[in-house]
Structures are given as C-alpha cells and as structure tokens.
Design a protein around this nucleic acid. Sequence first.
DNA 1: TTTTCTGCAAACGATTTGCATACAC
DNA 2: GTGTATGCAAATCGTTTGCAGAAAA
Lengths: 152, 152
Amino acid sequence: MAETFTITDLKLRLQERQHKMTPQRQTVLQIFLDHPGEHLSAEDVHGLLRDKRSEIGLATVYRSLELLSELGILQKIEFGDGCSRYEVNTLDPTQHHHHHLICTKCGKVIEFEEDLLDDLERDIKTKTGFSVQDHQVKFFGLCKECQAAGEN
Amino acid sequence: MAETFTITDLKLRLQERQHKMTPQRQTVLQIFLDHPGEHLSAEDVHGLLRDKRSEIGLATVYRSLELLSELGILQKIEFGDGCSRYEVNTLDPTQHHHHHLICTKCGKVIEFEEDLLDDLERDIKTKTGFSVQDHQVKFFGLCKECQAAGEN
DNA sequence: TTTTCTGCAAACGATTTGCATACAC
DNA sequence: GTGTATGCAAATCGTTTGCAGAAAA
C-alpha cells in the first residue's frame, strides 16, 4: 500500500521554503489524514474543523490548501461541481495518482487505480515534443447502481 | 476529417426539445464555427460578438452556451484558468474528443488526437461495473518551446 | 524582534437569476 | 395568442485580498 504524508513531512517541507509551522496548517493536514480517500472542498474542511472544535478562518483554510498543494502534499482536483477539491498525494512521486470515475446521474466519484497512460505519454513526447509531467483523467458515465436503476 | 455541426443541426435539435430558434443562439454557434479549434469562454464569445456588431447580453451568452452543451453541440471544458471554456463537438458520437496538453509554464493548450483509452475503459467496466460514456484527459507539462527556454 | 501568519471584513470575478418586455412559433 | 427567450441589473457563491493584531522563528 502507498504511504502517505505525516505532520513531520509537513514540517520539513515548510522549513525548506521559509514557511512557518502553525497549528492551523497542521490541523488542515490532519483533517485529510483523518479522511482518507475523500475529496474535500475548502468548505468541507472548514466544517470538519468546526465539528472538531478547532475552527479556523475560512480564508486561512483556503491559504493552507493552496500552500499544501504547492508543497506537493495535497492534490487539487476539479469535478465541475462548482468548487475545488483536494486529496492527499501519495509520497512516491513516481506514482501517478489514480483516475476518477464520475457518475453523471448520482454524482458519486469512484477511484480507479491503474496507469495505462505511459505509452500514451511516450507517444505524445514523440509526436509533439511536449514533456508530460502529470495528467488528470476523468471518466464520465453511469455507476453500477444508476445503471440498474435505469433499467426500470 | 471529422465533420462538424451546422446551423441546420442546431435548428433540428432545438425543435426536438420544444426550444426556439433565435438569432442569438444561431450567432453563438456561428462564432464557434468561425473559430475552429479554439477554446472560447463566455467572455470571449461575448467579445467576438461585439466585434461582429451583433452584441447580445452576456446572460444570454451563458444561457446559449449551456443549452448548446445540453444539445451535445458544444463541449464544456475546464482548464483551471478560472472560467469554463467551450469547443464544438464532432458530429460522430462514437468518436471521443481529443486530449489537451496544457503547458504549466506558458499556459498554451495543444490538442492531441489519439484514443488509446478503449482498453482502459473496458478494464474499468470489468473491474467496477462503471459504464464509461465519456472521458476528459488533461496532460500537464512543458511544451517544446518552454523546455528549450528552460535549458538556459 | 523580525518576519510570516491569522482572522475578519470587504473586494472580486465568473456565473445565475428575477422580472418585465420582446419575439418565435 | 401563447409560451419561451432576451436583456438588464441585482444577487449569488466560491475564492482572494488588505490590513491590523498575533504568533512562529
């Protein structure tokens, strides 16, 4: 299983860039560690912090999310639902993150681990000279349940 | 070469759904036909219409873009630059649209025609039961020019 | 003690909406 | 005629920013 980030990693990466370790940044990361596999928005994080009685300003949540993304700890994703969402990255930088299957009926997001895109990326490099660093793949369709529900 | 939509297609699809053909909807589609391969935002379309002396209300542009997307004539894309963009779909519904290579340095968007994802979609169906209808693939990296510029 | 952070409230920009009028059918 | 579409301006909503006080190094 892929390992993920710790609070210590956060501290180290902050130090590398003249940034300070603060309780706010720590608790924002902690929220993600406590909710693995979820795609949390700024509002989600803000609400979860409130539930934990460690409320912090919404602006600070936004600033923390952006910083954590810059540090490579979080990954920003857009599902087209009107707000940016985030998930924890895997520690291994050679491992591309998974794909997302988005059900167009119920909105559910399913993770799919697989990486068959290496061939495609090689092809892109050959044909266009473009050097791929990362990719984002979203599949739209119907989940098993919504397919079943649609058969009535 | 893949054929694209015409004003007649628009008229037909509108009729199928109790919608009316209006000069505004027609000129919005015409803008896309006049700018093939471009990824236009609502503001872009609004500006281009102004240049053509056929200015229409911005709200109407938004409403037309949404309607044209629902009719399957336009495709909505998000490049993460703060606004939704649109491009004309291909007429052939079996043909998946191309991929986008987004340069993280200069922001240029390059089109890449290829579809190696059929295997992956079959795999998804087998393993998760999810039935893929469409996909959106974005590759992030450096274009040829920015790679060259970075070698200094 | 110096610099970076936080929190608040105000600003922002893209998009949506209410409503009266205008137009397609 | 009837119902949908338009245009305008106001409202909305996620996100960003300015600034004064608070806290990390």
